[in-house]
Nucleic acid binder design. Structure first.
Lengths: 329, 329
DNA sequence: CGATTTCATGGAATCGATTACAAACATCAT
DNA sequence: ATGATGTTTGTAATCGATTCCATGAAATCG
């Protein structure tokens, strides 16, 4: 491979001058500039990125932590991040955490070793105190996540408002007994729960503890949970789910059991994924602007890197969720 | 940030010795080794990746070219690649081409500048002759793609066999008039078409040119195409689609029009995405082992990098597709 | 015991760029 | 003519690691 030294000796100029041409700096005469360009083409020269990174102390790489690539909502976020990254000449390194605390910390190693300029979390597994020390090594942005004591910029969706909206909708449809399915016990889940109970209490309703279900993520979880609900003696008439996959699976299972949706059981989704409008009845769900939140996070990341923005003090940007009423409620 | 020189002077040793400890080389006495480890911890030292990359002429990074992140089939491939990459200490850089020839070539720049050790294509836009020169700079693997004259390893699915299987199934169900929807005019599409017509000709059937539809990718395309099919005077009774999204949208549109699926119209999907088993009736479709093909491609990539395998001569690994019979046919 | 091999360590070159500083020269106002 | 200013170019240091080679000490061997 040709190096900058080869180009220099080929043209009879110094490496410094060649470098100036490469980086399009001023103070290089027109003829030398052209000479260098020709030589680069002639020799098949391309600047070595590792060398540049070392010298410039920049890699133009961001690590994006994501639980699973096969989760459409997260790829939507990723898509939003990618768009802004591309506009800024940044590349993304995908880090699939599979929801493992250990893996999450391993990926932060990329930051310490300066393989990436910063990190965007689309979900956090560890406590903030575990993460905090890493903020010394570069910008860390939380996207779609919130930690009360995190000293970094966060872009989040107003989950409280979103679940409040959805729950209120169920109540307005006349439902008095609501089942609630949640995922993990993350900050995000807590917010949804808050919104749910806010609406419930406002309406003066009661939610029995056996109507609350934990760790429902996948379609299989949806089927299982739905059957648990069916077997309850005092059965809820509406279900608040943590995601469209779960909701879709429940709708299907309901039909398999001869239950009318929404007549005998109303089911509310979350995310507004493509599947929501493909199944029958179409899912009423809560739209989360995934691509937008990703884009915002990446924009903030760039501002931090450029020093336009403080990266080690807390800031929160909040986007609203909206209810999409279809046929399942 | 602490450097190796800091660790060296802190311990009173040379950089060479510290480096040996970092890389776990032999010929370092036990006490010095411990001394260095303590010093590293004490100083908060982490080896700089850019410096290592420069010196080692390796980045442990692969660029993965993918049309869209929001296409579930491709994220499945990505997931398979990621798994093997992780086992080998490699990271993935995502390159979303959005099916643009120009972007695709831009991403190949990562290879020339040695930002990545190699490239995996999950889809190719440019002609092979455009890509070929880049093979000089590192391993290039085609995953789920095939180019007749490509001089690199390819891992592909037997699309001819897959579409033959699906088409034969439709014929066995008694259908005589088959509509055929294809995507682009890539090698992959050609293969599917070949399998389709093979089955059709074997059965002595005829396919009118107005039963063939191009550029059907999305759900919207599905709806549009379905309506075109409905308006035909001599209407087909079965549809071979290029993907489950298209098929799902068609099933839905059929129901909206009061047509029974599969009674009045059989619809065959492709991919076996989660949505296939969520809609009603469930889609008969062709299962493509996405994760597996990704994993295989990455394994081959590693072999090329280790020199265990020739990277600039053609080799083809072909995996079979299988028919998943459900309710839409 | 002397010769040979192995171990432990350091010095210095190297990977391939960028950039501070200096020097040579041209331009221009006074 | 003098000094100030700006342009063009080169020299050499630097970024932070790895590794070849050399050296002395210790272990092994006949």
């Amino acid at each position: 491979m040709a190096t900058i030294a080869d180009v220099a000796s080929y043209t009879g100029l110094s490496r410094a001058t060649v470098s100036r041409v490469i980086n399009d700096y001023p103070h290089v005469s027109k003829d030398k500039r052209e000479l260098v360009h020709e030589a680069m083409k002639e020799l098949g020269y391309f600047p070595n990125t590792s060398a540049r990174n070392l010298r410039n102390r920049r890699t133009n790489l961001v690590a994006v932590l994501i639980p699973r690539l096969t989760n459409p909502f997260f790829t939507l976020i990723l898509d939003g991040i990618e768009k802004v990254a591309e506009e800024n000449g940044f590349q993304l390194i995908i880090c699939q955490t599979k929801s493992s605390k250990k893996k999450e910390l391993e990926f932060l190693n990329l930051l310490q070793t300066k393989q990436v300029d910063g990190v965007i979390f689309t979900s956090i597994e560890n406590d903030w105190e575990e993460i905090q020390p890493y903020t010394a090594h570069g910008p860390i942005i939380l996207c779609n996540e919130y930690h009360h004591d995190a000293t970094v910029p966060m872009v989040r969706l107003n989950q409280v408002q979103g679940s409040y909206l959805g729950t209120k909708h169920l109540i307005e449809r006349g439902h008095k007994r609501l089942a609630y399915c949640m995922g993990s016990t993350s900050g995000l889940s807590n917010d949804r729960r808050k919104g749910f109970f806010q609406a419930v209490h406002e309406a003066g309703l009661e939610v029995k503890s056996e109507w609350i279900f934990h760790d429902t993520y996948t379609m299989e979880d949806g089927v299982k949970t739905f059957n648990k609900i069916l077997s309850l003696t005092e059965r809820p008439t509406a279900i608040f789910t943590g995601g469209d996959e779960v909701a879709a699976a429940m709708v299907k299972e309901a039909k398999r059991n001869g239950l009318d949706v929404p007549g005998e059981m109303a089911i509310l989704g979350f995310d507004d994924q493509p599947i929501a409008s493909m199944i029958e009845p179409e899912l009423t769900t809560i739209y989360q602007p995934g691509a937008e939140i990703g884009g915002r996070a990446m924009t903030i990341f760039m501002d931090c890197l450029k020093g336009k923005r403080d990266r080690i003090s807390q800031s929160v940007m909040e986007l609203p969720l909206s209810l999409v009423i279809r046929k399942s409620t």
